[in-house]
């Protein structure tokens, strides 16, 4: 019995303690619909010589999201635990700021890069409370027919295309030319 308790204690010790603000333990508002950041082009701020203005409430929302997703007390774990290694995208809708956080591939070079691991937080501007979080890979909601998360598609594809084959598509006309010469030459 004592051995069983010890194993249990070690297992519990290996689990993370609850951290963060009170909003971390609050139930999330599942009615909030997240915008799709991938379909919108973002306007970058920070150009030299240009002045930008930002409401304090919006700034607080970004800080609240960053504090919860990238806690300061864990910054020494790895390069990817530092918020300077991330890019933040913000979309305001009414009293909600949606804060999208993605890894910046340049930040930890030449170290190893992340697959997935990003998140979007919905933060209420009026009180800075996190209303809902959506991490990469989590279901957005009920899958809609035809959405990327939905089940099998209708309509036949070309049966002559082998599974996973990459040779049949035309090169994208806007593929950046400076990338084309990258990497090692073909043998």
């Amino acid at each position: 019995m004592r051995r069983l308790l010890l194993v249990g204690a070690l297992l519990l010790a290996g689990c993370p303690r609850r951290q963060g603000t009170s909003s971390a333990s609050s139930p999330e508002d599942l009615s909030i619909v997240f915008p799709d950041f991938s379909t919108r082009q973002a306007l970058s701020v920070g150009a030299p010589g240009t002045t930008y203005a930002l409401d304090g409430a919006l700034l607080r929302a970004v800080f609240v999201a960053a504090d919860a997703f990238l806690p300061r007390e864990q910054e020494d774990r790895s390069c990817w635990s530092r918020r300077e290694a991330w890019r933040f995208r913000i979309l305001r809708e009414g009293d909600i700021a949606f804060v999208r956080m993605d890894a910046d591939p340049r930040a930890c070079a030449p170290g190893v890069l992340l697959l997935d691991g990003g998140a979007t937080y919905a933060v209420r501007l009026s009180d800075g409370r996190i209303l809902r979080r959506l991490h990469d890979g989590e279901p957005v909601g009920t899958p809609l027919p035809g959405s990327p998360d939905a089940g099998a598609i209708d309509g036949p594809s070309d049966p002559s295309i082998p599974v996973g084959d990459t040779t049949w598509g035309e090169a994208h006309p806007a593929f950046p030319s400076q990338w084309r010469d990258a990497g090692t030459p073909a043998p």
Binding site: S78, P110, L115, G117, A119, D136
Partner: peptide, 15 residues
């Protein structure tokens, strides 16, 4: 990348 809440999933693939 460790996530205390265990909601964030990732894999660091060496180059």
């Amino acid at each position: 990348r460790v996530d205390p809440a265990q909601r964030s999933k990732s894999c660091l693939l060496p180059s």
